[in-house]
Every structure is written in structure tokens, then in C-alpha cells.
Design a protein around this nucleic acid. Structure first.
Length: 108
DNA sequence: ACATTGACCCGTT
DNA sequence: GAACGGGCCAATG
């Protein structure tokens, strides 16, 4: 059971214009309580894959920036804005509006 | 095989 | 409300 594969699937299932938290993805990926694996998976997979990693944010609804990430700074923010996601004054996402509500299907 | 790290989350101080 | 520490698993050197 490749756990990482689940993460990829879950993230890929995130609809456009919505965002999911690491904890959310972790639960859907069968990694409840282990959000680190999610972050690690995305760290290893990075944008080279077809995974909308930019739709995955931390529990605070903020984007996880990284100095090692695609050499950009607000790249993820721009992508999310293009998806129709609005940001708060503090650069956070309106989780109440854009938080992805996972359906019952998890496509294993 | 051991030690270190990594895009996190939660509880307590 | 902010800061600190603990915990989990996997990949890398």
C-alpha cells in the first residue's frame, strides 16, 4: 500500500477553486495524524508532477512557502488566485469559503 | 544501519 | 495570543 500514491490521488482530486489542509489530505490518504508524510510527499514530488500541490495549505489556511520551492515566492499564491481563491489581508485563505469538503469517494 | 531533516499539527506554557 | 516542545513516518547522506 504505497501511502504516497494515496496522497497524490487525494491532492489530484482537489477541485479547482478549493483548497485542502495537510491534515485533511492526510486523513483522506489514510495517513490520519501524520501530516508530515503529506508535506514530505509533496516536497519530493514537487511541481514536476501533475499534482496541484498549490491547493494544499497548512491548517492555518496559509500557504507553506519554502526557500527550496520552485524558486518563486508568491507562485502558489498566484496560482490559487487564478483558481478563484481569495486571500485575506494577512495573505491567508478564506477557509470558510474555499476549504475543500471531501466527498465520500476516495478512489483507491 | 545510524543520524539528520522535512512544505506539519496539536497541546501546553 | 505567541512561543516551545513532542510526535509521527519516510527519504537522504
Amino acid at each position: 500500500m504505497p501511502s504516497y500514491d494515496n496522497i497524490y490521488k487525494v491532492v489530484s482530486q482537489i477541485p479547482q477553486g478549493k483548497v485542502a489542509t495537510y491534515g485533511q489530505v492526510a486523513e483522506l490518504a489514510n495517513l490520519c495524524g501524520k501530516p508530515r508524510l503529506v508535506g514530505y510527499a509533496l516536497y519530493r514530488v514537487d511541481i514536476s508532477s501533475d499534482i496541484p500541490w498549490h491547493r494544499v495549505v497548512n491548517a492555518k489556511g496559509e500557504i507553506s512557502y519554502s526557500p527550496l520551492r520552485q524558486g518563486g515566492d508568491h507562485t502558489q499564491k498566484v496560482l490559487l488566485e487564478q483558481e478563484g481563491i481569495e486571500f485575506s489581508s494577512n495573505g491567508k485563505i478564506n477557509l470558510c469559503k474555499h476549504l475543500w469538503q471531501p466527498t465520500l469517494e476516495v478512489t483507491y
